[in-house]
Design a protein around this nucleic acid. Sequence first.
DNA 1: TTCTCGCTTGACGTATACGTCAGGCTATAT
DNA 2: ATATAGCCTGACGTATACGTCAAGCGAGAA
Lengths: 145, 145
Amino acid sequence: MSEQETSDLGAMPGFEDMKQGDLKSIAQASEALGVTQRTLRFYEDKGLIQPKRVGSMRVYSRREMGRMQLILRGKRLGFSIREIGEFLSLYDHDPDQVVQAKLMLEATQERLAELRHQREAIEQTITELETIEAMSRQHLAKRDG
Amino acid sequence: MSEQETSDLGAMPGFEDMKQGDLKSIAQASEALGVTQRTLRFYEDKGLIQPKRVGSMRVYSRREMGRMQLILRGKRLGFSIREIGEFLSLYDHDPDQVVQAKLMLEATQERLAELRHQREAIEQTITELETIEAMSRQHLAKRDG
DNA sequence: TTCTCGCTTGACGTATACGTCAGGCTATAT
DNA sequence: ATATAGCCTGACGTATACGTCAAGCGAGAA
């Protein structure tokens, strides 16, 4: 396997804790984050991250990795990438994070309301399905004697 | 407003309880079911219903209306139209509904498992979001004094 | 020099359940 | 005869989050 400048970035013995210690190639970043390279490029397209370039190759610093963690967390919490993008851009242009925190609070509450609704809907559906399940069992029991 | 043979079908005074009492045009059917005409045509395309034709116009009998109720119920319970289609075709070719009931039971149980997972995931997400909500509040409280 | 890696961009594909035209037919009302 | 209403089919559009090519470039290796 030949590795080019990409791997050189991560493999400079003795320089691990320089100012820009942990630079990663797209392969290393996707590996570390558990997402595909396609996903990283996709998020970049959408403006969620802006990895540096060395020539044409993407380089992921701790900043990008941190943002990716936030993005993935947002996804786990059920926010769309559009929403996540909005949060991040607020985050960028709001050093004190006052506006950011307020809007985050709002979004969080809205999402909570949604989830509570969903939870109720699911409970109802589960109840109804349990009824159907019981009826199916009876139906089968009758026919089998 | 002019109504053609469509409305004539539903408007035959004195004949309400003929053998084929309640025949409906697509407009009346969609109205009664609370779905769009497009939806009815779509389900027909997918083979879920087979309304009769008078010339080229669709006519919905009680049979189709009944199937539509089942379809809509299946949707509410979270089954895909493909799954619903499979149930219905089993239903058709299984007069005793033994096979049907067995498979329905399986599908029901699978769906229940899914829903219970979802419910857990939602509970976790709600918990996490509540934490974030509390943190946002603290953040704002600090800055506002 | 030629091969092979890893990377690049761009564009089209996927799944779901319809929405939204566009163009055209027919029957009734005027 | 013409307008209008209601219906028809067929085809493309929508939203989401990527997957999957295709074609090509620069850099070490053989």
